[in-house]
Design a binder for these strands. Structure first.
Length: 365
DNA sequence: CCCTCGATCAC
DNA sequence: CCTCATATCGAGGG
């Protein structure tokens, strides 16, 4: 019996939330920005509506470039309002969850629903449910979404990407091969610029070409894990279950310095602020961390990390802040030429805060 | 098997 | 003149 899996992708989500918050901007290009605070305009585009995309304004480009592309055009440049998007997301997820046998939220604007049991494997019925979900999300939240339905998560995700925005693509089990055959290999989740480059070296552009490669060649080129993933993905095979995501296993915050520097005195205030912010998130979720890391992005935009395992799991600002400062000092010492542009603090090895006091605390007292 | 770190992806 | 956040893998050292 085939599974019936649905992937729901909320269209240009941040920008659509902003359109709803202020419908007058709906007719203009809408650009949601992450301002870095370095200068008035510095930062990047988080997402944009489809009108803005017509002008080439897409996620990730510098705000300055977006302004240039839209100069002389009446456009709305808005700062991110993450609490708003999280609230809308949560309400939508609460609409979706009950429509599923099992549910998996992936990030703020995506979810998988396993609807095998309630459709009894019937893809016609699944299509009806998908239509109802789209209507429901529209009527409750005025948000459009694109939905893919397929026998597994992999193909459902590729399908939701097929028609956007406000799309619905159903790929029945017998249609999987024909559906994938036409598509470029970069449509496979996990295939980005680097993997695309390697595939080009093998003269592979499309999924059907990928499916002709010998698995040994793939493993040799991409490693055991990615290689075998690509082999199966090209055949539309995937048996990952849809399952609720537990707690995240890491938390991080990154910020941009006012100016590039390697002076710890100039770096410390931001570092401590980020450490405090991460600690806040940790405590909100009642978690402890086993390790602390710093991230340094240099003036040449190269990324470096340095991490250390703590003596014992911690959740207090002093322990995490001190560890971050220590790591930053060690990093600067190890890289005498490093000029720092941005820094981050990450905690990992998270587990639920237990009331249980670690015995090492007593041994040291 | 654990720790650390860079790379990659996708957002 | 270039944000932010998370997960995962593989390598290298121990």
């Amino acid at each position: 019996m085939p599974r019936v899996i649905m992937h729901v992708d909320l269209d240009y989500f941040y920008a659509q939330c902003e359109e709803n918050a202020n419908p007058t901007i709906r007719v203009k290009p809408v650009v949601v920005c992450v301002y870095s605070g370095r200068t008035e305009e510095s930062g990047a585009v988080a997402t944009s509506n489809y009108l803005a995309r017509k002008y080439g304004v897409r996620a990730g480009i510098p705000i300055a470039r977006a302004k240039k592309l839209l100069e002389s055009i009446d456009a709305a440049f808005l700062p991110m309002n993450r609490p708003l998007y999280e609230a809308v997301s949560e309400r939508i997820m609460d609409l979706l969850r009950p429509q599923s046998d099992s549910f998996e939220k992936v990030g703020i604007d995506e979810a998988y629903l396993d609807i095998s049991a309630r459709t009894d494997g019937n893809f016609e019925q699944a299509k009806e449910i998908a239509g109802e979900i789209k209507q429901q999300v529209t009527s409750h939240e005025h948000i459009t979404c694109s939905i893919g339905v397929a026998p597994n998560k992999l193909v459902a995700k590729i399908a939701s990407d097929e028609r956007k925005p406000d799309g619905l693509t159903v790929v029945k089990p017998e249609d999987v091969s024909a559906f994938l055959a036409q598509l470029p290999a970069v449509r496979i989740p996990g295939v980005g610029t680097k993997a695309e480059e390697k595939l080009n070296q093998l003269s592979v552009k499309t999924i059907i070409q990928l499916s002709t490669l010998n698995p040994n060649v793939l493993v040799e080129k991409f490693g055991k894990s990615v290689g075998s993933y690509l082999y199966e993905a090209s055949r539309g095979q995937d048996d990952e279950p849809v399952k609720e995501r537990e707690q995240p296993t890491q938390l991080s915050r990154i910020g941009t310095l006012k100016q590039n520097t390697r002076e710890i005195q100039e770096i410390s205030p931001l570092l401590v602020g980020l450490a405090g912010s991460v600690t806040g998130k940790l405590n909100q979720r009642e978690l402890t961390c086993k390790s602390v890391a710093i991230i340094a992005i240099l003036n040449d935009l190269s990324i470096h990390t340095k991490s250390k395992k703590l003596e014992s799991p911690a959740s207090d600002g002093n322990t995490i802040g001190d560890a971050a400062k220590e790591l930053m000092n060690e990093f600067l010492e190890s890289k005498p030429d490093a000029i720092v542009r941005r820094i981050g603090v990450k905690v990992a090895g998270l587990s639920k805060h237990s009331g249980q006091m670690d015995i090492s605390k007593f041994l040291h007292a």
